[in-house]
Simulated assay, not measured.
Amino acid sequence: MARPDTHRLRLTLALLAVAVLAGGLLTWRAARSGPAGVTPTGAAPPLRLYVNPGTTTPQIPLWAAVRAGRLESVFAVQSQLWKTTDHLQGLLLAGAGDAWIGHIDGFARARQRGAPVVLLAVTGWRKFALVSTDPAITGLDDFRQRSLPYAPFGSPAVDIVRAILPETAAAITFDPHEPRQLALKVLQGKAHSALLPEPLVTTMLQQVPALRVVVQLEDEYARRRGGAARLPIAGLAVHARLVQADPERVEALLQAVLAAGAEMAADPEHAAEVLPPEFAEFVPREVVRQSLARDVILAHAARDVAAEIESYLRIVTPELFADGAGLDPAFLWAGTAPR
């Protein structure tokens, strides 16, 4: 059996780590004229957008809107990297930036803690997979009375498994790892199975010939719960200040993202090309392209999938619903300034 290229994998993992740890400034202008990062007099106002290159598919609709010029009269996008999910939480709580692309459970937690965050769109729906090099593994039930490594710490994937397979999950010992640590264990044969997110799933499939996807977690959710094989995992949120000051411009941003997302869904082969070229230093475009074989480019207004969002958050953030509590109605953009 062919041995994986250890040096190449370590390089790829190092780049993924840089995507998490980097804090450099990336500037894009929707109008694509004049000096980068400068909004000329009379042009669209800047939109300070926090993103992470490792969040691949959820970014495609917005960057497709930028590339197509759909935001020329709406916003000039200036993007800066968030480093870790904890870093993003801090930014949200401080109200730093105008918009953010990240995990919806993180947005909801921050909103409960007083952050001025309003969820505009859901753009990330399929992320988690059980992978294994053991041909005897056919599903999650095979891990009863066994340990199942997963990454990263606090992954919503564990909560999803507990929701759809409560008896099985109760018999599994979930073993948390940092992504790079677990990837190296799989490479070295010290771990034969893992519960991982994209784009790490695709990276590992490229490097470990015997590795295969056993279960896509969103498919398992649909089999057990019914409905579409998707979960509202990630999306685009904006600062409440924007919603209050210029709701028409916020709605224009949403409509541009929805339209661009629909265009990319019809042409997924070229979807990776709309991401900023700087992002390829962290996650190669070929990884993005291959991950789309298991993913879906889909942008929905948060208000149109409110029931799915609540169902998902009840699984991964049950504390938000303790004692009969519910989501703040103003958390989802309704098309007019929240009351």
Rank of each mutant, 00 (worst) to 15 (best):
A68I: 15
A262Q: 13
T55S: 12
T203W: 01
S155G: 11
I60W: 01
A301F: 03
V214C: 09
Q181V: 13
T317S: 14
D323Y: 05
D105Q: 14
T56F: 03
I309K: 02
M1A: 14
L253A: 07
H87E: 10
L217W: 00
F331S: 02
P53C: 06
H103A: 11
L165S: 03
G326K: 05
Q255S: 09
S155T: 15
L231E: 03
A210I: 09
W100K: 02
P4Y: 05
D246A: 12
F143N: 01
P209G: 01
H87P: 15
D295N: 09
V161G: 10
L253W: 03
L292D: 00
V51A: 04
G54M: 10
A22S: 14
L140D: 00
I233G: 05
V296F: 08
D323S: 10
H239G: 00
A64T: 03
E167A: 14
E273M: 08
V20H: 11
V51P: 06
E278H: 14
R241E: 08
A252Y: 04
R180A: 12
A136F: 10
V208S: 04
L25Y: 10
A337D: 15
H300F: 13
V131Y: 00
F107E: 02
T85P: 10
R144V: 15
H7S: 12
A280L: 09
L148Y: 06
V66R: 03
D141H: 14
L211T: 12
Q244V: 11
A108H: 01
G95L: 02
V117H: 07
D246E: 13
I233L: 14
D304P: 04
I164C: 09
V38E: 08
P58G: 03
R249W: 00
T123V: 13
I172Q: 01
A44L: 06
T202Q: 07
R230G: 06
A299H: 01
V208I: 15
A222N: 09
L11N: 12
Q255A: 08
L242M: 05
S33P: 14
G106W: 02
G227M: 07
R29K: 14
A334C: 05
R3H: 08
A266F: 05
G235N: 04
E198P: 13
W333F: 08
F282D: 00
P277Y: 12
P268Q: 07
P232H: 06
L9E: 11
T56N: 04
D86P: 06
A129G: 09
V208H: 01
A301Y: 00
P338C: 06
L49W: 11
A22I: 04
A43C: 12
E308D: 13
V215S: 08
R339C: 04
A136E: 14
R67S: 05
H270E: 12
F279L: 04
S311D: 11
A265Q: 07
A22R: 07
R285M: 03
D86N: 12
E278V: 15
L217H: 00
E248G: 07
F331I: 08
